[in-house]
Design a protein around this nucleic acid. Sequence first.
DNA 1: ACTGTCTATCGTTATATTACGATTAAAGAA
DNA 2: TTCTTTAATCGTAATATAACGATAGACAGT
Lengths: 106, 106
Amino acid sequence: MGISKKEEFTSRQNKLADIAKALGHPARVAILEFLATSNTCFCGDIVEELPLSQATVSQHLAELKRVGLITGDIEGTKVCYCINHRAWNDAKEMMSEFLTSIEQCC
Amino acid sequence: MGISKKEEFTSRQNKLADIAKALGHPARVAILEFLATSNTCFCGDIVEELPLSQATVSQHLAELKRVGLITGDIEGTKVCYCINHRAWNDAKEMMSEFLTSIEQCC
DNA sequence: ACTGTCTATCGTTATATTACGATTAAAGAA
DNA sequence: TTCTTTAATCGTAATATAACGATAGACAGT
């Protein structure tokens, strides 16, 4: 990409874009929906649910963890992934505010 | 990316992810904010506002147009970019619904 | 017809993303 | 200790994205 110009934008714009980017793949949308509706949050169950390999699912989980939307707690040999409610609510508020702020135009 | 597995997800998950992806760059967030707050919607004014070249801004505008969030109307030699209110409201509703649907977890 | 202005597109480069098989590391069970 | 299960990481390949200069094409003015 040549050199990134992200520093040239506000930190709010960057944070918003970063959250949106994390939601910008159907697999990650599916993971979040699975976590919200299923009883189990174990990585293995997510892998079973998705049409992707274990390695790929692990990558998507890492991306969601990178932006803080989920946590991963080790339980024995398994890992339990959970929605980080604080971060999720922050993201929800930030996104909602943005979505409603874009109204009128020329 | 090897081969994309996007067909394996629901069309709703894909659409949601596609919108999120379009919002997943600070330049595109900035463009939408500019359109919502400024009187002018001309491409040239957007280019002036952003710390990016004309070619790069044009690419970002094309991406926003691709998902339907903005329209581009030719007016003489200039092009007036506007928020597509119908599409924006659809996106807003879809995103809000998703954001609020993710609540409880394990 | 010529000139300048505006914006899309082309060509290119650097980097990021998505995907997977194979391997590794950690924990529990035998 | 040895074996199994689980999930992260490594290595790699294909594709996508972001950035820009240069060019082209459309329109308006002279």
